[in-house]
Simulated scan of single mutants.
Amino acid sequence: MADPLADAVIRFQELSTYKATVRSMAADGERQVIRYFFRKPGWVRMEFAEPHRGVVLIYDPEARRIRLWPFGLNHALVLPLAPDNPLMRSPRGHRVDRSDVGALLDTLVALRARGNVVALGAADVSGHPAVGIEIVGAASISVAGVHRFQVWLAHDSLFPLRVKSFDAENKLMETVDLTDVAIGIRFSENFFTP
């Protein structure tokens, strides 16, 4: 595998749907667990398990709007919000409309263009064979506030399984694990428009 990042970008361009359980742990101990669903051209559905159990949000890329069910889909209350609404950003600035694996890969490619890549070698990530790479910005270069990424891509699909981000002082900012990954799944007709 000459360039796993370039190959991962090609594989992402070829897929139409995926789902995963996203577990993130910030350096300050903040933890999130989200069931994440994606369909091109940018539909996103997030079902929160931690810390806001039961919250569901869906991003519609055509309308560029988020619909938020703060008490779950079985409740009538639905809040329409813009993707840049401060309530919809994570403490680290993540936005729903830029939360998919394609956006991550774009960030990795942008940092690589202003830095370099080092192979971390083969690893086992949550029981899956993976290949690791480290992308480091030159000097004090950062992209989206990140100076260095360590990424482990599934050996078979090159789908990201674990991502660690570090700031310019080399402090760990966040670790994100993607488990229960399924690519190319079929969603029901109204899955993103309940």
Results as ranks from 00 to 15, higher is better:
108 L>D: 06
139 A>F: 10
130 A>Q: 02
102 G>S: 09
168 A>L: 08
162 R>Q: 13
167 D>I: 05
110 A>W: 00
118 V>S: 11
155 H>K: 15
96 V>Y: 05
93 G>L: 10
142 S>Q: 15
164 K>G: 00
138 A>N: 13
101 V>I: 15
141 I>Q: 15
96 V>D: 02
127 G>Y: 12
163 V>E: 08
170 N>P: 03
174 E>N: 10
104 L>N: 04
126 S>N: 14
95 R>H: 15
111 L>E: 04
167 D>Q: 05
105 L>D: 03
127 G>F: 07
103 A>Y: 10
94 H>L: 11
165 S>R: 06
127 G>I: 10
150 Q>S: 09
145 G>M: 09
138 A>R: 15
153 L>R: 04
107 T>H: 10
92 R>Q: 13
138 A>Q: 13
136 V>R: 09
120 L>Y: 04
139 A>G: 06
104 L>S: 03
142 S>R: 11
123 A>V: 01
131 V>F: 12
92 R>H: 14
110 A>R: 13
124 D>T: 08
148 R>P: 00
161 L>T: 01
97 D>E: 10
172 L>H: 02
109 V>Q: 09
174 E>M: 10
142 S>F: 04
169 E>N: 15
118 V>L: 13
115 G>R: 03
92 R>L: 15
148 R>W: 04
105 L>Q: 03
145 G>I: 07
124 D>R: 10
152 W>I: 04
162 R>C: 05
156 D>A: 13
114 R>C: 00
107 T>W: 03
152 W>T: 03
107 T>D: 14
127 G>W: 08
101 V>M: 15
143 V>K: 04
116 N>G: 15
121 G>H: 07
145 G>P: 02
158 L>K: 07
113 A>L: 11
126 S>K: 02
149 F>H: 07
149 F>T: 00
